[in-house]
Simulated assay, not measured.
Amino acid sequence: MSSTDLAIDVSNLVTHYGPRKILDDISFQARQGEIMVIMGGSGSGKSTLLRHLLGLHQPTSGSIKLLGKDITKLSADEMYDLRKNMGVAFQGGALFNSMTVGENVELPLREHTKLDENTIRIMSRMKLEVVNLAGFESLMPAELSGGMIKRAALARAIVMDPRLLFFDEPSAGLDPVVSAELDELILILRDAMNMTIVVVTHELESAFKIADRITVLDQGRILMSDTVAAVRASDNQRIQSLLNRTPRNENINAEEYMERLTREIF
Rank of each mutant, 00 (worst) to 15 (best):
Asn12Trp: 00
Arg213Cys: 06
Thr215Ala: 15
Gly62Ser: 10
Ile210Val: 13
Ser3Asn: 13
Glu117Leu: 12
Lys73Trp: 00
Ile186Ala: 14
Ile71His: 05
Ala76Asp: 12
Gly68Glu: 10
Ile26Cys: 11
Gly102His: 04
Asn12Ile: 00
Asp212Leu: 07
Ile22Asn: 01
Ala229Val: 03
Thr4Trp: 00
Lys73Arg: 14
Ile26Ala: 10
Glu255Ser: 13
Ile214Gly: 06
Phe136Ser: 15
Leu95Gln: 03
Asp77His: 10
Gly62Phe: 09
Ala229Pro: 00
Ala153Ser: 15
Arg125Ile: 00
Val216Ser: 10
Ser241Leu: 00
Ser3Gln: 13
Leu115Met: 15
Arg125Cys: 04
Asp235Trp: 00
Ser42Ile: 08
Gln219Ala: 14
Gly146Tyr: 09
Leu23Met: 06
Phe166Tyr: 13
Ser11Arg: 14
Pro170Asn: 07
Met193Pro: 00
Arg125Thr: 02
Leu217Thr: 06
Ile186Pro: 04
Val216Cys: 12
Tyr17Phe: 15
Ile35His: 06
Glu205His: 13
Gly135Thr: 10
Thr196Tyr: 08
Gly220His: 08
Asp161Ile: 02
Leu74Lys: 08
Val200Cys: 03
Leu185Ser: 10
Asp9Phe: 00
Leu23Pro: 03
Leu107Asp: 08
Leu217Pro: 09
Gly33Lys: 09
Thr15Glu: 01
Ala153Ile: 06
Ser145Cys: 06
Thr196Ser: 11
Val131Cys: 10
Arg190Ala: 02
Gly33Leu: 10
Asp175His: 03
Met160Gly: 01
Leu187Trp: 00
Ala180Leu: 09
Arg163Met: 11
His112Asn: 14
Arg151Asp: 08
Ser11Asp: 12
Gln219Glu: 15
Val178Met: 13
Arg260Met: 13
Ile149Ser: 04
Tyr80Pro: 00
Glu250Gln: 12
Asp116Gly: 13
Gly102Asn: 05
Met195Ser: 04
